[in-house]
Structures are given as C-alpha cells and as structure tokens.
Design a protein around this nucleic acid. Structure first.
Lengths: 342, 342
DNA sequence: AAATAAATCGAAAACGTTTTCGATTTTCCG
DNA sequence: CGGAAAATCGAAAACGTTTTCGATTTATTT
C-alpha cells in the first residue's frame, strides 16, 4: 500500500507538501500540485482512511438501527437512506434490533464505540426506556429517529401523522357504511400503535359511533405477522358476529386476516371491509387487493438522512441546530377490500 | 472522550501498562490489572476505534454490494449476513449497485478505499467485465460472491444449483402434462439466468420435447419486475395460443404474468400452469398461490459471511485458503398455480 | 547475603494522515 | 540592485493505540 511518504520520496519533497498538494492547498505551486497528482495516480495512491479518521475524528459513516430488515417498508427506508447518504459521501452500517429492547441497547453501544458520525434509529416495539438514546445525545453523536419514535427524546424526527392517517382509514370505513368497526392494533407501546388507535377512536366518536374496547385486538408480544392476522381473525369471528369493518395496523396482518376470512367463508368486502396500513407492494397484487394507507418509506429514509446530515454539519461547525420534526404525507389507497354496503 | 493517557495519569502509571492491563497481558500484575479495569469502567473508557484500526490495520467491518435492497430474497440475504457477522464481531456496510455495472464498479472502489476487511458481492445483471473484482483480489482483500456470481473469478462462492432447480421446475410442468412450455428468462448475462435456461432446456430434451427458441422470452434491459411479467404475458398470448405451461425466472415476474392472465380471462392453472422461482413470501398468499422453487436467502447470507470470515482469518495468519464453493439445496414447492391436466 | 530467576513495568517507535507556523525562496518594484 | 511582499515549502506535533524490548523490581535459591 502506497503512502504519502512514498510519493514524497519519489519526488524528493516533503510529506507535508504532498498532502497539501493532493488537497489543492493554494499553499503549493501549481507545478508541484500537478506533479504530485500525477505520481499519486501513477502509484495508485489511496489515502489510508484509518489514518484520516484518526486525524479528522470522523469516519463519514453513520449507523442505522431498525427492528427488522426483511420487511417492505423498512427495506424501502434503508434504500432511501443509502441513496441519500451516497450523495453526501457517507456509508451506512446497518444493524437490526429484532424488535428487542435489549438488542437495541447493545447495537447502540456498538455504534457508539465504533464512533460513527451519526445514528439513525427506528425503535423496537418493546422499547419503553430511553436511557440508551439520551446517552447518544449526551455523547454529542447526532441522532435522528424515524417512524417508530419516542416523543420524549430530544432529537430530530421524521414521521407520518399516524393519527390522521388512521382517522382517514377509519372514516373511509364509516363512509362506506360500516357500523361495527374493529381495530387490530398490534403492540401497546410503540407510538405508532398508540396514535393509530387514537385516530381510530376519534373517527368513531366524531361520527357518533360508540367506542367499544372489546373491538380492539392487542397483540402484546406480537410480531405483526401474517399468522397474527389469522389468529385475530379467528378470535374476532368467535367474539363478534356483527363486525362489518376492520382497520388493521399493518398490511401483513391485514392480509393474514383476509386470507383467514376467505378460508372460513366470510366474504371480503361483502361481509367485512378491511383497511390495512403501509401499502406493501403485496397488497396491490393479492385478491381482493387491499385498501390501505400509503406510507412513504423511501422518502422517509431520504428525509431522515438529510436531517442527520444537517445535524452532523452543524456539530462540525460548533453551531447548535434546532431539532426538526418532519411529517410526511400519507394517503388512502382504495382497492377491493372495501366496498360501499347497501 | 477519555483515553488511555488519562487513565494512566489518574493512576500514575504508564500508558503501556494501562493498554496491556486492559488486554489482560500476563505481563502485568493482577493487582494493577484489576485497578486499571476498575478506573477504566469508572471513567467510562471506550477505546478509540480509529486509533485501533490504524494500529491493527483492520476495522472489523465488511462491505456488501447487492443489486437491489427492496427485494424479498436479497433482504433475507442481508439479514443472514448481518446476523452471522454480529456473532463474530463484524459490522457490515451495505451498498447497492441498482443492477448497474458502472455503479457496481464505483461501489467496489469505495469499499476498497475505505479498507474494509472483506467484501461480499452479488453481481448486477449488466456486469460482464470482471476487472473490478480481480482488483479486489489483487489488493488481497478477501472476497466472496453469492447468488449472482461470475464463474471465472477465483474466489469463494455460495450459490444454488440453478440448473438443477430449473430442471426440477420444468420437469414438474412436464409431469403434470404440459406439452408446450415457455420460459421467461429475464436478462441474458447473469449466470443464474443462463443456468436456469439450460436446466429448462435439458428437461425438455430429456423428455423428448422439442426445444423451441420462440418460447423463450428475454428481457435484456428488464428489471425482473411485476410489469415485466405482465408485458411478457400479453406478448405470449399474441405469439402462441397453445402454450400450457411457463417456467418463470422470478416470482415477481410470475405474479405479474399471472395477474395479467387472470385479467385477460386466461385461467391459471386450468389453461396455463405457472412455476416461479425464489419463493417470495408473497407467492404463498396470492390467489392462486404460486408453485415455485424455494431459494434459501437467509442461509445463503449466513454461509457467505462464514466463508468470508474464514478467508479473513486465513489472511491474518498469512495462510493461504483454498477457495470453497458452497452449493445450497433448493426445493420445489407445489401450490395452486400448477395442476395436473386431464 | 549474593547470585540468579521471575515478575512487573515503561520508553519509544510505529501506524499514516492533517495542519500550524516558521523558514526559505521567488517575485516585484522603486 | 536592495528591500519588501508574496509565494512556496517543510519540520514537527498531534490523533490514540499496540507492541517490542530493555530496565527495574521482586522473589527464589544456594
């Protein structure tokens, strides 16, 4: 591996000059600048990034922690982050928390000890304590949270308006004539889950529909899976014969439920209308296709990195940066799983 | 940020001793070892990884280049790689080539200049030149390729037996009575595409079915998308009225084709049987569900990292390591899109 | 108690870069 | 041609760690 020293010896000049020449310091004459550039590329010189990192105290690398990777929404987010990071010359290290608080804590420690320039995180469902996050902030490592956030933690965030989106979804069910609307809410803790539930509830109340807690299905230790949807669907049929609409936290769960309904002879949307959440690609190709809320994963990733980048830049210049909260637009995509009743 | 120096000053001993104490050198007394450990954790000492990298010439970080991220198979591979890397204390930087040779080359350069400890790669469809790969090997950076490989390049590989899998898929169509079997092969270049095509062809010949090139649909600049499947399906109906079975390179394309057939009133599997490839989760929940070849993404990721790890370890010990080629098992999953004709 | 062996420590170099600041050279102008 | 100003260069410190090897201390033996 060729170093500055070798180039210097080759040309009979000092390491300093070589370094400055390569960084186009006005300090060194055009002639030597050119000379250095040429022999550098001739020898195929590549700066030793380990040394650069040590010297500059930055690695142009950020860390990303997400609950799951094999997931349409999250992999879209990853893509958004990476594509944006690339533009600014940053690399991204990906870790997954597997929806476990303990693992999430460990991954944060790992990233901090690796001294990444910043951290992007979407919380695990089980995360209720935020010490590991405030630790990041205390160490002055830029942090931005996206999608599954903790409102308390003081940092930039990029989210959607879950409450509004859930309201829209529920209102749609009401508009097409549903009278008994259930909700599969997933876990209890995550902010999204809370907000979507609140949106659902508010839509009911605004339309003078009595809120019935027994219509809300919680899966405390759930994994938002296909199976979870099937189980909830079976349980729902046992508990309530009169439900004619369901707003479900996630497309995958919704698809599981729909599959189970079809299997048990319950017609969707004729007997039960279903609205999902996230707009997984899958939802558009199954039959019946799923009405859902579009959640812009790629955009969310892009915006998350952009915010992080601003924080990193501000920190480098010792400026302080007012944390921002970006709220992305969602929209209702009406497909075959919901139909006006008559 | 606390350094070895600060601990040394705190205890009135040398930096050397502190460093050795923390690494449990037998060289330093148990008493001072304990003392150092305690004050280190008291001061919340974290070794500066930049300095460690520079000194040890390794970063415990590997690079991963894949064609696409938002993709069931590839995201499974990512998960497999990350989970295995974590066990060995490695972090992974992910880059995507977006199926572009140019971008792939750029990403390789990036990783090499970042001096990652090793590189994992699955080739872009357009990659026909391998200079960038041999460059990696020449620089003595461990390299292993997976799934979309170049046979010529001398390095460890983990793949499936695409030819055999395609043969099995085609044989299944023949077994259920199909006489005119088409093939959507995707791009021309990738090894998988070639092998799957050869498997298809061999199955036909072994069963005394004449191979008809006009039944093979190539999408040179295709993206293996849902849309591609729809287009091919339409074209096929125009070209050939008598086709009763199709073996399709990828599930997503297969699902696109199936959707189009249903839309155009062609019954699957009654009129045309379809076999896909990869076993995307989606394939099990659509209707009709898709017969396909299961491709073990997670396992492939795990094995790829394991091989890379062996190469990295061998390199550190200056041993040479005979490149290995791991071939993973696949299996045919029969679902509703194929049915015995009568 | 002296001689030897064993245990424990630390000075210093090295990894390769960046940057400050002083030194030297060149240019320019009267 | 002399002097000041501008242009060009390089010595050296610093980033924080690891490791070699010699020095010092302690323990052991005769």
């Amino acid at each position: 591996m060729v170093t500055l020293k070798q180039i210097a010896e080759e040309l009979g000049i000092s390491i300093t000059t070589v370094s400055k020449a390569l960084k186009e310091y006005p300090d060194v004459s055009k002639k030597t600048r050119k000379l250095v550039r040429e022999t550098a590329s001739l020898l195929n010189y590549k700066p030793n990034s380990f040394a650069v990192n040590l010297r500059t105290k930055e690695s142009k690398t950020i860390g990303l922690i997400i609950p799951v990777i094999v997931h349409h929404f999250f992999s879209s987010v990853i893509k958004g982050i990476i594509s944006q990071a690339e533009k600014k010359g940053y690399l991204v290290i990906i870790l997954q928390s597997d929806e476990s608080y303990e693992l999430e804590k460990k991954q944060v420690d790992l990233l901090l000890s690796k001294r990444v320039d910043g951290i992007l995180i979407s919380l695990a469902n089980g995360t209720g304590d935020y010490k590991h996050l405030t630790d990041i902030i205390e160490q002055e490592t830029p942090l931005v949270m996206f999608d599954k956030i903790a409102k308390i933690v003081k940092c930039s965030k990029v989210i959607i308006d879950d409450r509004k989106a859930a309201y829209t979804a529920t209102q749609h069910l009401i508009d097409i004539g549903c009278k008994r609307i259930a909700h599969f809410r997933g876990a209890l803790l995550p902010q999204n889950s809370i907000d979507r539930f609140l949106g659902y509830k508010k839509a009911l109340l605004d339309n003078n529909i009595k809120y019935d807690p027994s219509l809300v299905y919680v899966n405390e230790c759930g994994d938002m899976s296909f199976e979870e949807g099937k189980e909830n669907a079976r349980q729902l049929l046992k508990d309530h014969k009169d439900v004619d609409g369901i707003f479900i936290n996630t497309d995958l769960v919704a698809i599981g439920a729909m599959t189970e309904f079809v299997k048990l002879g319950v017609k969707v949307p004729e007997e039960i209308s279903i609205v999902g959440f996230s707009n997984w690609f899958m939802s558009s190709v199954i039959s019946p296709s799923l009405t859902t809320i579009n959640q812009p994963g790629f955009d969310m990733g892009k915006n998350a990195f952009k915010l992080l980048y601003k924080e990193i830049k501000a920190k480098k210049q010792n400026k302080l940066f007012a944390h921002k909260e970006v709220v992305l637009e969602t929209d209702l995509i009406i497909r075959e799983s919901t139909k006006t009743l008559n």
